[in-house]
Nucleic acid binder design. Sequence first.
DNA 1: ACCGGTTTTTGAACATGTTCAAGCAGAGGG
DNA 2: CCCTCTGCTTGAACATGTTCAAAAACCGGT
Lengths: 274, 274
Amino acid sequence: MEDNKGGAARAAEELPGGRALPKTGKSEQTRAVILETAMRLFRERGYDKTTMRAIATEAGVSVGNAYYYFESKEFLIQGFYDQMTHDHARDAASRMEGVRDFAERLEIALVSWLDCAADYHEFAAQFFRTAADPDSSLSPFSNESHPARATAVALFRDVLMDSDLAPKLDAELAELLPDLLWLHLMVVVLYWVFDRSPDTTRTREFVHRSTPLAARVISLSRYRAFRPLVRDAKGLIQDFILPTIGRTPLPDRPTTTDASAPTTRRRKPRKPAT
Amino acid sequence: MEDNKGGAARAAEELPGGRALPKTGKSEQTRAVILETAMRLFRERGYDKTTMRAIATEAGVSVGNAYYYFESKEFLIQGFYDQMTHDHARDAASRMEGVRDFAERLEIALVSWLDCAADYHEFAAQFFRTAADPDSSLSPFSNESHPARATAVALFRDVLMDSDLAPKLDAELAELLPDLLWLHLMVVVLYWVFDRSPDTTRTREFVHRSTPLAARVISLSRYRAFRPLVRDAKGLIQDFILPTIGRTPLPDRPTTTDASAPTTRRRKPRKPAT
DNA sequence: ACCGGTTTTTGAACATGTTCAAGCAGAGGG
DNA sequence: CCCTCTGCTTGAACATGTTCAAAAACCGGT
């Protein structure tokens, strides 16, 4: 009986699979009420100031009940993340419609994220903090691939594939790029989290400056002079970045034949006694 | 009397300035005992498993006393960070002696960090998590520049300046690079934190692969074909990365004359009701 | 309508980070 | 020797995330 197949028990572990299950049961409703209440309070008072007791009370349930649906307070963040990713994908797609220029499309996608996240700027810091914990399954880097991450990467595939740049790229690069663009977003998010300028204007400028540069790098990568560099960079990304991100099942032996031993050998240094 | 000028009260806020104040008072000793005990327990049991009560008991003081010296549990991490940075700088410098090749020097510096941090792999995840909080003064990105960060950047300046690459670079680039190399370390740290391979072998391989690439990029940046790209990248870094990192006092108006308005204008999207 | 099982809900109990009013110790002065 | 002041120390009390045994609600079958 430990695998409780039905219902929403251990919901936090089940749901990543599908936020969808409509399930006539009113249980889903309770879950929804708790999540919505939590998100409202997070937005109103911030993460730390919102106690589980307050969430429960406001949602009209007991504190234990909240824990029945969400493994921990952090798992409530998951709900936020999923929803925002979804909203972002929708919004960005609609804004990009008709635009062809790659740099522009990329900027639109990134700015769209900033707009979607604007209300949660303070709260998001907390989210980011959580994401930085490798033990937390919330981490976008964790191998158990988030469906949310897949959604985001898919968006960036569209950014690329419906742009004027797509036909000019070789297939291999086109394969890597969506994940790299997603990484670009992660960098922007990092920047944004630390951005204290009013209305995060600075992050917006950062995006405005960095997207044309990214576009240029990608464009140039086709030229002869850059070949060897691009080849090595690709290798690095394929062997070390994507697997970590959960894209591929982590090859124990990198695809390159010669993974020569590091030049520097282990040697534990010990700090000198004070 | 609120500014208690002397002593170590509010020590956590005083000390970042100077770990030094020897202060005959035995109070310094109490502080040291608490910090050492905490670090030992962190190493032995991990951060979360180590309770403040345990630290206090093992250190032979009361729990309240620990709070007299350290504003919170997180501030104990500061102690760890400072010490490790110092050890790293020392160890890396000694290992690099005589080596001239830039890529090699860089790899040595990074591997040295991995060795210094090895004992704290699990614990460091927690540290990283803390560092990801922009409100925490522990964050290496916070504007109130950590002395520890300065130490680390200085190390990378040495990595560069004593290498065979130094004479070939223009002054402007040489100015930026130490910070960028430090960022490289940050990326490695990020990788390392998430690395679950035994003995973090994977991170070591990652370093081994990424350092020659970094060296190559820097080398190539001198060539004609790359000029415009390098120029823009420099601008981006100077205007947006370094100020955020606390290197320069954050110019409200970027140095470029034309900071044209973002192409995409604010437009708050609202998620469709379920 | 009743029964056995399963899902949902409850609230008290627990663990742990943090605070604070009160106690203690040593230094200086009388 | 006693008084006082100041920096140090204490431990009980508090706030809040989390657990858990038990109660309640629900459901399908008879």
